[in-house]
């Protein structure tokens, strides 16, 4: 088993690295005895996305919109209720495709909580060597790889290899987490709020390191964050989620420069401005997202949307191509029945 070597590209640069279609995850909550008559939280509902080779796809949205569930579905920490995944041409977990284990070797994840994601009883070296050893790398080579990984994430191997997680700062621990995600030489790294818990100065260092590592190791990133500025800095394309659905998807310039969906517009106008004369005076959208147990009919954003009309309650807007980006809003679809719909 030489599965600890990097995986060669197969389908060429035009083939998406990861293609997920119709992903759905509903969590049962409470409910009756033996699971009858239970309600479900619709965490992710029929989500389709593709990640191109070498790009950084940013995923933004409010808390509870299903960002982390998407991450966990893509690495199969959660089993989707429905939907298929294709990794560089190979279907995942299907008869003629690759196994979930093989997927997990090529796709790795960095978690948000840098402390909870490190085993307090293991030294940094033991943590980093765990995955390569589990895949059959001999101890001596694993030791070399640990030193190599630590150096890559900017931690002096002699100083840090034998330390325990509690002896490290938050930024150092997150570097270790990134090193662990790279230990199996993956092609896609999912960063789930990987820098959100760090101080701003440390965050900037780690972000720059991520950019460097991406070029050096020709990685692809799926970058999940609620911080719009960070996503703008890092991403090539941006995906905006609301209540388990994609509302807008497109190149970073299009999304930030010319947002089409009212939700994206509201998110962007909620950003703190660097210019004191351009203060945000009012909250662009009111209240909390609706309960995902019983999401609104039609467009899920309509309960908070200033432009909502009858059609929004009746028909669910499809993700429509508007030229530069894809938007799920009736106002952007000609003949949808919305009074503001483009002609």
């Amino acid at each position: 088993m030489d599965s600890v070597l990097p995986v060669e590209d197969r389908g060429g640069p035009a083939q998406p690295l990861l293609l997920a279609s119709g992903l759905r995850k509903h969590f049962p909550v409470g409910g009756g005895l033996l699971g009858r008559g239970r309600k479900v939280v619709r965490a992710v509902d029929d989500l389709t996305l593709s990640v191109a080779k070498g790009e950084t796809l940013g995923v933004v949205g409010e808390s509870g919109c299903g960002k982390s569930t998407v991450a966990r579905l893509l690495i199969r920490l959660l089993k989707p209720d429905r939907g298929t995944m294709v990794l560089d041409g190979d279907p995942v977990d299907e008869p003629h495709g690759i196994t979930v284990n093989e997927l997990r070797r090529q796709v790795q994840m960095v978690f948000q909580d840098s402390y909870a994601s490190l085993n307090p009883r293991l030294t940094i070296a033991e943590t980093l060597a765990f995955a390569p050893k589990a895949h059959g790398l001999p101890a001596a080579e694993a030791r070399d790889r640990v030193r190599d990984l630590l150096a890559k994430v900017g931690l002096e191997p002699d100083t840090y290899a034998e330390r325990y997680p509690h002896e490290l700062s938050g930024g150092q621990r997150q570097r270790v987490n990134i090193a662990r995600a790279l230990a199996l030489r993956p092609r896609l790294v999912i960063l789930d709020e990987a820098v959100s818990a760090l101080d701003k100065s440390v965050e900037a260092q780690v972000l720059n390191m991520l950019v460097d590592l991406k070029t050096e190791l020709s990685l692809t990133y799926l970058f999940i964050s609620h911080d719009l500025n960070v996503v703008q800095y890092l991403s090539d394309r941006v995906l905006v989620m609301y209540l388990g659905k994609i509302v807008e998807l497109g190149p970073v310039e299009a999304i930030y420069g010319d947002p089409q969906h009212p939700y994206t517009q509201a998110l962007l106008s909620a950003r703190p401005s660097m210019d004191p004369r351009k203060r945000t005076k009012e909250a662009p959208i009111q209240g909390d997202p609706p309960n995902p147990i019983d999401p609104p009919s039609g467009c899920r954003f309509r309960t908070r949307c200033p432009f909502a009309e009858d059609v929004c309650a009746r028909v669910e807007p499809p993700l429509a191509d508007t030229g530069r980006q894809e938007v799920a809003c009736h106002m952007r679809v000609a003949g949808s029945g919305h009074s503001k719909a483009v002609a």
């Binding site: 070797r105 978690f111 765990f130």
Partner: peptide, 26 residues
């Protein structure tokens, strides 16, 4: 429930080695 167990699962390690290395010690 800790992320380090999820991270170990995501590394594709077998259930036994996850229990041995990450669960038992704790």
């Amino acid at each position: 429930g800790f992320d380090f167990v999820d991270a170990a699962r995501a590394s594709g390690a077998s259930m036994l080695s996850i229990v041995r290395v990450h669960v038992l010690g704790n």
